[in-house]
Structures are given as structure tokens and as C-alpha cells.
Amino acid sequence: MLEFDVAEHIQAIAYQIPKKGNVYNGDSFFMTVTDDYYICAVADGLGSGEHAFHSSNTIRQEVEKNHDQEVDVLIDRCNQVLKNKRGATISILKVHFLQKTFTYSSVGNIQFILSCPSGRFIYPLPILGYLSGKPQKYRCETFSYEKGSKFIIHTDGLEIPSIKALASSTGSVEEISNNLEIYARTGKDDLTYIVGQLF
């Protein structure tokens, strides 16, 4: 588990567990925060095991090296580095603190939801498919967010009955993560989730 607690702007927790019986987790993630922005990327390599890990980890490394770039540039770079690899689904979130906006893009089955204190939910739809180095369409959307908004990003290894209710709960980031962890223990698939709150 990896946790950021930057009281001025964001608190975030990442949790990861491999499929039962596997040494390698086919999911990878990266997140970091600067004075100006927070960025996280979650990638799910196709299949499971070592080859899936290598694909998703290639994405993690690319975002880590270039996290100062905008989301549309990053997702295209990630597609390019997957040429001749197995392929992966991807989700990138970049939050700009000064503007109180975030940009999000996703290809594949990684889920994202943001819950605002006013009761508004934002859940951009991903583009179908996966990155593999071949020409791919992307959709990058930018939204405003309210102070206190909470978000959840997770790979398809996590099955939650009501993610809306969890994202909009009054619980802390730690409490939401603890609730998600209960659903994470089935071991049916590789799993990664990130929970955060924006201030």
C-alpha cells in the first residue's frame, strides 16, 4: 500500500494485490504530487503473470519519466512504447490544483468515479480496446472539481456492489480504502485501486 498525505491539496492511497497463486501482478500504477499537480496512472496488462506485468510496468515507467506532460501526450507515448508487447488497458488522471480541474483519459476496462460534496458524480466513459502500439483513438476530458471531492480508480479485479455509495460516503480516504480491501480479497484477478480526496 502506498499513501500520500499532502494536506494542502490531496490525500491518496493506492492498494495492489496479485491474482491468487501468481508472483507477478499484471497491474501497475504510478502516482506523484508536485506543488502544481497530482498525477496517477493505472495500467492492466492483458492476461496475467509476467508478460502482463511487463506491459503494464512499461506504462508505469513511461508516465514516471514524463509526468510533467499533459494527459493526451502521455497516453500516446504509452501506446508507442507498447509496440511488440502484449498490450494493456490504461487510465491516467491529472489534477491541476490552481485551476481546480482534472483531466482524465482511459482506454479499456479500468473504472473511475469522482464524487463531489454537492452530490454531483463524474465518471467519464473509457474508449473500448487496449493499447498495443497500433493507431488508437483517445478521449481526454477536463472537468472542474469541488473542494472535498473524492475519487476511486480501480482495475477490473475489483467488483463492488455500489461504488457510487462508497465514493460519496462521509468516510475518510482510509475508511473507504478499508471497505474496498474487503472486496479485494477474493484473489480471482490482479487488482489495483487508488482512493483519493482533493482539498
Results as ranks from 00 to 15, higher is better:
I10Q: 07
Q11Y: 05
Q11F: 07
K19Y: 06
N22G: 01
D27A: 04
F29E: 14
F30S: 01
V33P: 01
Y37M: 01
Y38L: 13
C40L: 02
A43C: 07
A43R: 10
S48H: 14
E50R: 15
H51A: 15
A52K: 00
T58E: 10
T58C: 07
V63R: 01
E64V: 01
K65Q: 15
Q69P: 02
C78L: 11
Q80F: 08
L82N: 06
K85D: 03
R86Q: 13
T89D: 08
S91H: 10
L93Y: 07
L98V: 00
F102T: 02
F102E: 02
Y104H: 14
S105K: 04
V107Q: 10
V107I: 14
F112C: 02
I113R: 04
I113L: 05
R120S: 04
F121S: 04
F121T: 05
F121P: 00
Q136P: 01
K137L: 09
Y138M: 15
T142K: 11
T142H: 05
S144L: 10
G148L: 12
S149P: 03
K150S: 08
I152H: 09
H154A: 12
H154N: 15
H154R: 12
G157D: 15
G157E: 14
I160Y: 15
P161H: 11
S162H: 11
L166C: 07
T170K: 14
T170L: 08
S172Q: 12
S172C: 05
V173M: 08
L180W: 02
R185P: 00
G187S: 08
T192Q: 02
T192C: 03
T192M: 01
V195E: 06
L198M: 13
